[in-house]
Design a protein around this nucleic acid. Structure first.
Lengths: 234, 234
DNA sequence: ACAAAAGTGTTATCAGTACACCCATGT
DNA sequence: ACATGGGTGTACTGATAACACTTTTGT
């Protein structure tokens, strides 16, 4: 069905959400929550959480609001990903989607409500999604894997304090390869991304590891993104 | 003036254009063309080329079209930059702008029409622009400077063939620092980004340099962006 | 004592950098 | 011949990677 040239273009906001969950073997892997479409077009298909952009709401706020109302989650990291606007990406109307990507803490993801219209799936084994959402998740995954190597975002999957083994587990899950514990430790400490809390995590049948916290970079050199936010709007 | 919640949100496409031009001392520096606003709001201010998104036109095509119709230029590289949508970025209505950035060849920039409503300015010494366009250009500059270090975009400023000195001049202009000619040569050749044409550039009072051309990477490993285009729509 | 993970030390390799030096051309 | 930029050689340095080894806990 060709679009009338004067038909309005609709503006939507969607978010690709990532969280770490153990897979069947206990290893942490990336999962993403999807919502079932309850109306046409593409009714019944799984899709990214999102919605139309209200005239008086900021893009990032709309992203945080829609993902919370559909999945119950509050992201610890939220960043604009890309704007998808192909003329034919939705069958009925011209829809331009400003897509964000978000990271949520693992324990929040664990207690997340997964009702009949919310489903968590491994991020790299998606079912066929509505519209062009498969491609969007793949791009978000690519961005996450890229960005985790140079930016301080891995701690967004973790709580306030964490051990270096936990942090390394995040990197390994995202990058899908094992990292040398010794070298990882030195790199993290040298990077100044983390700081010791002075406490240790006891209880395991081995030497208790030190606990670290994310170290807000004081006045480091040039940020990686001029207008990056530390905390998402919510 | 507060916006009515049901007022429509308008969708615009704009482009930050970069080209290299010699400054007063003959060194190449980045310039960008601006267009004068001929209607309210912000009439008389200089702004990025752009326009409203037609319902049946692709985003990237709209970017290429509006920049050609206002500046007469055809970009050699065109990529989405970011979507700016703050509620108050335009005084009268909610305007969401999908912004692209473009690189144009130097000789095309040289013969570009610079009428009374088109003005070229050095990219890092902008006058006060309309809306949030200063911030947008700064972000585009940051992206360009970042991306030139890992992606094969520098040749977009040059013609079909070029010497390594010309290519180095591009890098030096973008990065604003001198590069060692010997090391630059080795890095470029080792990267596989360029290939010898077999020809040389004679006529100068010194050893004639070899001419190179951009080497389309055959089946290199993982691209830097899953859905990057090699050629812009136009 | 032992298993297991935390944490340290040491070395090899590689990319980036600095800079000395030779090469080939037009004047 | 000589000035000028093209082009090659080489040595230094810092980051990464590989892996042997020591430390500290619960059982």
């Amino acid at each position: 069905m060709p679009l009338a040239p004067d038909a309005p273009t609709r503006l939507a906001v969607s978010t690709v959400i990532f969280a770490l969950r153990p897979d069947h073997s206990g290893r942490a892997v990336l999962w993403t929550p999807l919502v079932r479409r309850t109306r046409e077009p593409q009714r019944g298909f799984w899709a990214l959480p999102g919605g139309w952009l209200p005239t008086n709401e900021e893009l990032e706020v709309a992203a945080a609001r829609t993902l919370r109302s559909t999945t119950g989650l509050t992201p610890k990291y939220l960043e604009q990903l890309y704007t998808f606007g192909e003329v034919d990406r939705s069958p009925d109307a011209r829809v331009v989607s400003v897509v964000y990507w978000a990271l949520v803490q693992s324990d929040e993801a664990a207690r997340a409500t997964a009702g009949p219209n919310v489903r968590w799936v491994p991020a790299d084994r998606l079912p066929p999604l509505a519209f062009d959402h498969n491609r969007i998740v793949e791009y978000a995954l690519w961005r996450l894997r890229n960005k985790v190597e140079y930016a301080q975002i891995a701690h967004a999957f973790l709580g306030e304090t964490f051990t270096l083994a936990e942090l390394r587990e995040v990197y390994e899950a995202v990058l899908q390869r094992d990292l040398d514990p010794a070298n990882f430790r030195r790199q993290m400490i040298a990077s100044g991304r983390v700081r010791e809390t002075g406490e240790r995590l006891a209880g395991a049948p081995h030497r208790p590891p030190k606990l670290y916290r994310y170290d807000t970079p004081a006045v480091t050199t040039e940020s990686h993104e001029p207008f990056m936010r530390e905390e998402p709007a919510s």
